[in-house]
């Protein structure tokens, strides 16, 4: 392939403009719109997100208002999804809890996606010494005691919702980086990348335009797997005094509370878990849709 490149073509600047062609993103958007499941999922997530974030102005009970006389009651006309052990409206607690869980789930995943993909792609693409050093740093970060790290963060910076994203992002990107690096290392040896390198395209451009799109499928899958673990991690962090503070709730804390009384008050587990699951399913379908839409090769069909 490389031997057929003429002198005229051998101009990196021209090549870069030439390969833009039809917009990748425009095609992708077109394909995504045709995927009904993905579209419904996207709409669902948007609606749910809007509901959660507008919870304060919705005509629902306040999330912290207790009714000690009734305690935990099953769903009724007054409390659609029942109440918790302090007699608080579960629907309200789920919607309010969705704010923090969706925010953490999406933001922390985005953070881990961003760091993990760039880090892994760089490490895998360049290889050699750089790869060694970068991967040993990942090993070190894997090993440090997470609980102590979180406690230190809290002591040094106080409780702060942005720190939550940092704490979670700091652990969640590591596996993403390892996976992306593994993929990139394989791709790096494929003809079209070798050719691009031989053509003298800039490294940054190769990584961003050729490597990352080609690992996107796996990245999206792993990202949708990160969302649930991040949402549940938030519940553990609020156990450490980070995360949400009572009486505010989050899906993670609601599910773990519900799990403790699943026999006596099943609705306390079922409804939060339902919101959690349906959201994850939607994200998953959306993820699959995105993957198909962005698949460079499938588009040739």
């Amino acid at each position: 392939m490389a031997d057929r490149i003429t002198a005229e073509q051998f101009d990196p600047q021209r090549l870069e403009t030439a390969e833009e062609g039809t917009s990748l993103w425009k095609d992708a958007w077109y394909r995504l719109k045709k995927n009904k499941l993905a579209l419904i999922s996207a709409i669902f997530i948007l609606v749910l997100g809007t509901l959660c974030f507008s919870a304060p102005i919705l005509p629902i009970q306040p999330y912290e208002a207790q009714n000690l006389a009734i305690r935990a009651t099953p769903p009724s006309a007054e409390y659609w999804l029942g109440t918790d052990v302090l007699g608080r409206d579960l629907l309200s607690r789920i919607l309010y809890g969705g704010r923090i869980s969706l925010a953490v789930g999406l933001c922390a995943t985005a953070v881990s996606l961003f760091i993990g993909v760039l880090y892994g792609a760089t490490s895998g693409f360049f290889g050699g010494k750089l790869d060694s050093v970068m991967m040993r740093i990942v090993d070190i970060l894997y090993s440090l005691p997470f609980i102590i790290f979180v406690i230190l963060l809290m002591v040094l910076f106080g409780r702060n919702i942005y720190l939550l994203f940092i704490a979670i992002g700091a652990v969640e990107w590591l596996t993403m980086a390892r996976i992306v690096r593994g993929q990139v290392r394989g791709l790096r040896r494929q003809e079209f990348i070798e050719a691009a390198i031989a053509l003298g395209l800039r490294r940054r451009r190769i990584i961003l335009r050729h490597m990352i799109p080609n690992v996107l499928g796996v990245v999206i899958v792993y990202a949708t797997l990160t969302v649930p673990s991040v949402i549940l991690l938030e519940a553990f962090l609020s156990f450490l005094g980070f995360g949400v503070q009572p009486p505010m709730s989050s899906w993670g804390t609601l599910i773990s509370e519900g799990a403790k009384s699943m026999e006596e008050h099943p609705w306390m587990l079922v409804f939060p878990a339902l919101f959690f699951s349906v959201t994850l399913f939607s994200l998953n379908f959306l993820g699959d849709g995105l993957r198909d839409a962005l698949d460079v090769r499938a588009s040739k069909d």
Partner: peptide, 10 residues
Amino acid sequence: ARLVNQEWKV
């Protein structure tokens, strides 16, 4: 009142 929960040793 604000509630503050901390890990045991903290």
